[in-house]
Design a protein around this nucleic acid. Structure first.
Length: 362
DNA sequence: AAGCCGGGGCT
DNA sequence: AGCCCAGGCTT
């Protein structure tokens, strides 16, 4: 028995927690399915993403790609378009690659072995535990942020949950508490408790089904936990972007590089700028250097902000024109309406939406 | 071990 | 203005 579990009663805890879960659990779309493919999609989408955000994406994605085969055969651009706006786009590309592997190597059947499933792209320790327990009822722990918050309070553990060593501690503890009879309900129950009762701020201890098991509650320190190192503030970046028309009524777009921020998404040409007075000139120089396009920047039309976890873009949008020249790899002239078929970062979706509205007024 | 990778909704 | 979220990958 793990030393942190001294005086902890796993059987009573399981009973109190799972009983509450079966009575109070939310009716979520992926809980209506037993298909491992559906469970898997939901778990990837739910990484660092709230339930309410995921729900519409989950429906649309499975409508577009109802089966492993359908997703395996899809073009990456179509997959990215379905993921547009959900963020962390490597999730979509990794999922697509993993599903192709399942189609080719496992006959389209999601592997239920830990080693096999864990080896798939984008499947880490949490996702492996979650899918194997929920879809296959395997007794695997699934330790995410919810679980660490809940158990740092239950066990009154003041170790930084951002550290790998702390996560390992929780995985060991959960491995000992996890019931063999219904690991699916148990894992989901801990997460449900974290989402509904044992929330980051103002936890609802009075409504908590396991309050009698909670050391932090007993000591009145539940608000101090979990311990987590503060993150640095994001840095600000001034940007210029341009809507460049050619003589045929087409607009210039660009695909971002394979790696890094917003990898492989499409965008209006843009570049970081230094001096406020020379933004338009810097934009022109960028287009000349990267696409051999010599634009006439005519006017500023919009300003858009986009906040990332480590970066804030302040994008000054210009409009202008250029000759319809040949373009390097990754650049395209596209009719206005066709831009809707490309996956864009949210900042560029806003630019596109505003542009379409302006054109409709004319 | 630490940094990178989105976007939205709370407080 | 921070904070957090059903994390994983890369270095």
């Amino acid at each position: 028995m793990h030393p942190l579990l001294e005086n902890f009663s796993p059987e009573q805890f399981q009973q109190d927690l799972v009983g509450w879960y079966r009575d109070q659990k939310r009716d979520l779309p992926w809980r209506r399915s037993a298909d491992p493919y559906h469970i898997w999609i939901s778990e990837i989408m739910l990484q660092q993403t709230k339930v309410d955000t995921v729900i519409p994406y989950y429906y649309r994605f499975l409508e577009a790609f109802p089966t492993i085969e359908a997703l395996a055969q899809a073009e990456e651009d179509q997959v990215m378009k379905q993921w547009e706006g959900l963020g962390y786009y490597s999730r979509a590309r990794n999922l697509h690659q993993a599903v192709k592997e399942v189609a080719e190597e496992y006959g389209g059947i999601v592997p239920s072995g830990k080693k096999e499933f864990r080896s798939l792209k984008g499947v880490g320790p949490y996702t492996a535990g979650a899918v194997l327990s929920i879809a296959f009822d395997k007794p695997e722990p699934a330790v995410d942020g919810n679980v660490m918050r809940v158990f740092s309070r239950l066990l009154c553990l003041y170790e930084d949950i951002g550290k790998q060593s702390t996560k390992s501690t929780f995985e060991a503890v959960l491995g000992e508490i996890l019931p063999l009879t219904s690991p699916s309900d148990f894992n989901q129950a801990v997460m449900e408790l974290g989402a509904l009762i044992c929330t980051p701020t103002s936890p609802g201890c009075l409504l908590c089904p396991v309050q009698e098991h909670c050391k932090a509650r007993a000591a009145g320190v539940q608000e101090e936990l979990p311990v987590k190192e503060k993150k640095k503030a994001p840095r600000k970046q001034e940007m210029a972007a341009a809507i460049i028309w050619n003589g045929r009524g087409e607009i210039l777009i660009h695909q971002r590089p394979d790696k890094g921020l917003l990898a492989r998404l499409w965008e209006f040409p843009n570049t970081a700028v230094e001096k406020e007075a020379e933004r338009a000139e810097e934009m022109g120089a960028y287009l000349e250097a990267e696409a051999s396009v010599t634009p006439e920047i005519e006017r500023p039309v919009q300003r858009v902000e986009q906040t990332f976890s480590h970066l804030i873009w302040n994008v000054h949008v210009y409009e202008g024109k250029a000759e319809r020249t040949g373009l390097p790899e990754g650049w395209k002239w596209v009719p206005l309406d066709d831009i809707a078929n490309y996956a864009l970062p949210v900042a560029h979706q806003k630019i596109y939406k505003t542009l379409v509205e302006r054109m409709e007024l004319k």
